[in-house]
Amino acid sequence: MNNKFGKITTLEHVLRFFQDGMTLMFGGFGGVGSPPTIIAGILEKGVRNLTLIGNDTGFPDIGIGKLVSRGRAVKVIASHIGSNPFAGKMMHEGSLEVEFSPQGILAERIRAGGVGLPGILSDIGFDNEVVTKGKPMISLNGKEYVVETALTAEVSIVFAKKADEFGNLIYDKSARNTNPLVAMAGKITIVEAEEIVPLGSLDPEEIITPGVFVDYVIPSKGVNWKWAWE
């Protein structure tokens, strides 16, 4: 969306990118750092049959857990689901496919997707049939490794403390979590920001995610982005 405010737009404008059956990657750790306004918009639109990629399944009414507990996902790729009992129940019932990936491996798979690598090599669990089932194995320098495929998504959704017109991002403490990696790995990356400031307002040394990875920025609910210029 080309306008004098760069990549800043509205929730209504970005909702067109969310469709049934899509792959959606999200930032957040137990709900902290997940974009609430975007998630609420996806719910309201009624998008279903999602494949979700992120650290966890949040809580039933917090973060990405709102989508999971309302049956909007058919598959989740995550490091754990224990904080959302609905996810465990649906997994055992067979209505939700869950692919578990250790937290560090999951982060590296997302990072690999963001930088254009096809996968990573891991020596974690290479001697465990449950871990290696269906995965390629290779030998390198006399050691065996499991090939863990990279992860990307049609859309990545990210939550930031501050964003400028170009999409440069700053995160708030632990809300940073997986957001910088997720921002890199989406074909389209949509950011929800608590505060939107004019270009040049952010200290370059504080910027964590460069705007080159960001396609759109929307204000978090209750924030009028025009106020940043007043």
Rank of each mutant, 00 (worst) to 15 (best):
N2R: 12
N2T: 14
N2G: 13
F5A: 12
F5C: 11
T10P: 07
E12C: 07
Q19A: 09
D20Q: 13
G21Y: 09
T23I: 13
T23V: 15
L24R: 01
G27E: 04
G31F: 05
V32L: 08
G33D: 03
I39F: 12
I39R: 06
A40E: 11
G46H: 00
N49F: 01
L50N: 00
L50S: 00
L52S: 04
I53L: 06
N55E: 08
D56V: 11
D56T: 04
P60H: 00
P60K: 02
D61N: 13
G63K: 01
I64M: 11
K66P: 02
V68E: 05
S69L: 05
R70D: 13
R72A: 13
K75N: 02
V76P: 00
N84H: 04
F86K: 05
A87T: 12
K89W: 14
M91I: 00
E93A: 14
E93R: 03
E93M: 09
G94I: 09
G94L: 10
S95M: 09
E97I: 12
V98H: 00
E99F: 01
E99M: 04
G104D: 10
A107S: 14
R109W: 00
I110A: 02
R111E: 07
A112F: 10
G113H: 07
V115N: 00
V115L: 08
P118R: 12
D123F: 10
G125W: 03
F126D: 14
N128D: 14
N128H: 09
E129Q: 12
V131A: 11
I138S: 10
S139K: 13
K143G: 02
E144R: 14
Y145C: 10
V146S: 07
A150R: 02
A153K: 02
E154M: 09
V155Y: 01
V155Q: 06
S156D: 05
V158Y: 08
V158I: 15
F159R: 13
A160I: 08
A160H: 00
K161G: 11
N168V: 06
L169C: 02
L169A: 01
I170Y: 01
I170A: 02
Y171W: 07
A175Y: 02
T178G: 00
T178Q: 08
N179K: 03
N179P: 02
I188Q: 04
V191A: 04
A193L: 03
A193G: 02
I196A: 07
P198G: 13
L199K: 14
L202K: 07
E206D: 15
I207F: 08
P210H: 12
P210A: 10
V212E: 15
D215Y: 06
V217S: 05
V217Q: 10
I218Y: 10
I218S: 06
I218A: 11
K221A: 14
K221C: 06
W229L: 13
